[in-house]
């Protein structure tokens, strides 16, 4: 028995294509990872009033700029999905590349921001606050890079009108990356 397309795109489990089902499970594990990390941060923050003085050194404008970039890249990701739904793979690929551009801009901003902070002595070992700051933002940054890489792979196929269902999957993942940042921004940059 052979399938012309990967099994995950044809079979359904529990009423969902297997690929999408796997994606929701992946997202559930991400909720645990980031939920646990952020919950730990909030607990420590409430138990350590001195962290507020450390947080004064984070740059709200870098955080705000990256929030706008991620919100806008989420828009381009959902527009890619919309284009894929209408069967326009080339348009979907264009929107995906736009989203990847947003991811690259986000990482460049982060690199500039971190360079400034590290050069002023705010390193990961300075205090508990900076330890959480670099861990949470760094882990999120790794997810940005992973999402952009996955989108590039999907975009190459989508441009040839192939595997268009993956445009939705990679988009949903990207929205999760956006949602995580929506909570990281006030926790790390606004609460001072």
């Amino acid at each position: 028995m052979s399938f012309a397309k990967p099994l995950a795109t044809l079979r359904t489990s529990a009423g969902l294509p297997t690929g999408r089902l796997a994606l929701w499970w992946l997202l559930a594990s991400e909720v645990i990872i980031f939920g646990g990390l952020l919950a730990s941060y909030v607990m420590q923050r409430l138990g350590h009033p001195e962290w507020a003085y450390e947080a004064e050194h984070t740059n709200i404008w870098f955080g705000a700029g990256n929030t706008i970039i991620l919100l806008t890249s989420s828009l381009s990701a959902v527009l890619a999905h919309q284009a894929a739904q209408t069967g326009d793979g080339k348009k979907a690929a264009r929107y995906l590349w736009l989203t990847i551009g947003g991811a690259a801009w986000f990482i460049v901003n982060k690199a500039i921001e971190w360079t400034g902070e590290i050069s002023h002595g705010f390193t990961i070992t300075k205090s508990g606050f900076w330890s959480f700051y670099y861990t949470a933002a760094g882990l999120h940054g790794l997810h940005v890079i992973a999402g952009a890489t996955a989108m590039a792979i999907v975009a190459l196929d989508a441009a040839k009108n192939k595997e268009l269902q993956r445009v939705e999957y990679v988009g949903i993942y990207w929205h999760l990356v956006d949602v995580i940042w929506i909570f990281l921004f006030p926790l790390l940059y606004i609460a001072k």
Binding site: K5, L10, R11, P17, L164, Q165, E168
Partner: peptide, 12 residues
């Protein structure tokens, strides 16, 4: 899912 989904994004 039948092959009619083969060329379109599948909703499931």
């Amino acid at each position: 899912h039948a092959a009619d989904h083969a060329h379109a994004p599948d909703s499931g």
